[in-house]
Computed example of a mutant assay.
Amino acid sequence: MSEQANKQELTGFRKYMKEQNIEFSFNRIFIQGLGGMAHGLFASLLIGTILGTIGQFTPGAVGTFLAEVSAYTKEIQGAAMAMAIAYAMKADPYVLYSLATVGLVANKLGAAGGPLAVYFVSLVAILAGKLVSKRTPIDLIITPTVTICVGVLVANLIAPPIGSFAVWLGTIIMWATNQQPFLMGILVSVIVGIILTLPISSAAICAGLGLVGLAGGAAVAGCCAQMVGFAVCSYRENKLNGLASIGLGTSMLLVPNLLKKPILWIPPTLTAAITGPIATCLFSLRMNGAPISSGMGTSGIVGPIGVVTGWLNPSEAAVKMGEVALTPGAMDWIGMILICFVLPAILSWVISEFMRKKGWIEFGDYKLV
C-alpha cells in the first residue's frame, strides 16, 4: 500500500472509528457484549433471586430485608445489563452512565423478552454515544443526550417486536421439548452446552429466550455436562486447581485447547447428549428459577440453585408457562444431583479414558495455558 493511501486511512473514517474505540467485530459485539449482559443479569436479577430464596427461609427482619433487596434487583435488571454491556464494550464513562436509562426503558418495553431487547438496543445506543464522545467542549451534555435519546427512540421502535420474537422463539423451544422430550432433550442439552463453553454467553441467551421448564432442565443438563465433564476429563493435567476453576468457574478456560484439537470436545458433548434426555424423560427436570440459571451450569453452582429455587418459588417466566411451586420429593433431589454432578463426572471420565487408551487424547491436551 502506498504512503498516500496510508495517510488517507489515518485521516479518514477508519481513523475516526479507531479513536472512538468503535469496533465491528464478532469479539466485540457477541463475545464481549453478550458476556457483559450475562454479568449484568447475574449481578442483579440472579443474585436477587438467590437472596430472595434465602429470605423465604429466614424469619424476622432479615428475611423481610432480603425479600426487599430481591424486589429492587428485579426492577433494576435492565439498567444493570445495559451498563454491563457498555463496560464490556469499553464505552467512555458518560456513555456507560447513560445506558442506565436506556436499559431500564428497553427492558420494560421488551416485556418478557426484555434481556434480548436490552442487548440490541444497547448496541445501538453505545454506538451513538461513542460517535460523539469527547468530541465537543460540552461533552457532559452532548454525550448523555445523544446516548439516551437515541437509545430510548430505538427502544420504542424495536424493543417490543424483539421481545415478542424472543418470547415466541423460547415458547416454541419449550413447546417442542414438551412434545418431544427425548429428541429436544438431546438438541437443547448439546447446543446450549456447547454455547456455554464457547466465548458466547449461554446464560444471556437463555435469559433472552426465557428458557424455563423442561427445556430449561435440558439446558442445565448440557451446561453441567460441559463444566463438570471438562473438569473431570482434565484432572490428570490440571489437578484440583483445574477441577475447581473449570467445574465451578467456566469451561471457556479450555477454548485454546479445543481450537488446537477439537476432538477434546467429544467426552462432555457426548455426555450432554446422554444426560439431556435422561433429564427430560426420566426425571422431568425443570428449571423454573430465573431463566439465566438455565445457561449457567455449575458456575458458582447457579444451575442447581436455580432448579431448587424453581421448586420453591417459580420465576415470573415459569409462572407464565403454567408452572407452580412444588414440594420436591426424593426423586427430584436424586435427579438434580445425578444430572448436575454425578452423571457428567462418570460419563465424561469413562469416555475420555477410552479415548486416551485409543491414543485420541494424549497427556497434556487438556493442560490449562
Rank of each mutant, 00 (worst) to 15 (best):
M1G: 12
E3W: 08
Q4H: 12
Q8V: 06
E9I: 12
F13P: 00
K15Q: 13
N21L: 08
N21K: 15
I22F: 05
I22K: 08
F26W: 14
R28M: 12
R28Y: 10
F30N: 02
Q32G: 00
Q32E: 15
G33S: 07
G36R: 10
L41I: 14
A43S: 13
L46W: 07
L51F: 14
I54P: 01
Q56P: 00
L66F: 10
A71V: 09
T73R: 09
A79Q: 06
A84K: 10
A84H: 07
Y87T: 14
Y87D: 05
A88M: 13
A91I: 12
P93K: 15
Y97T: 13
S98F: 10
S98A: 15
L99F: 06
T101I: 15
G103K: 11
L104Y: 14
V105A: 07
G114H: 11
V121E: 07
I126G: 07
L127H: 10
G129E: 05
G129I: 09
S133K: 10
L140C: 04
I141F: 14
T147Y: 11
V152K: 02
V154C: 02
N156R: 06
I158H: 05
P161D: 03
G163D: 04
A176K: 11
A176M: 13
A176S: 11
M184D: 01
I194Y: 03
L196F: 02
T197Y: 07
L198F: 13
S201K: 05
V212A: 12
M227Q: 15
F230V: 00
A231I: 03
A231E: 02
A231R: 09
Y235S: 00
E237R: 01
L240Y: 00
L240P: 01
L243Q: 04
A244D: 00
M252R: 15
L254W: 05
K260V: 03
P262F: 07
A272C: 04
A273Q: 10
A273V: 10
T275R: 05
I278C: 04
G289I: 10
A290T: 11
M296L: 15
T298A: 03
V302E: 03
V308S: 09
T309S: 14
P314K: 07
P314E: 04
K320D: 10
M321W: 07
A325I: 08
L326F: 09
P328M: 01
M331A: 09
M336C: 15
L343A: 11
P344C: 03
I346G: 01
R356P: 01
G359F: 07
I361F: 01
V369P: 14
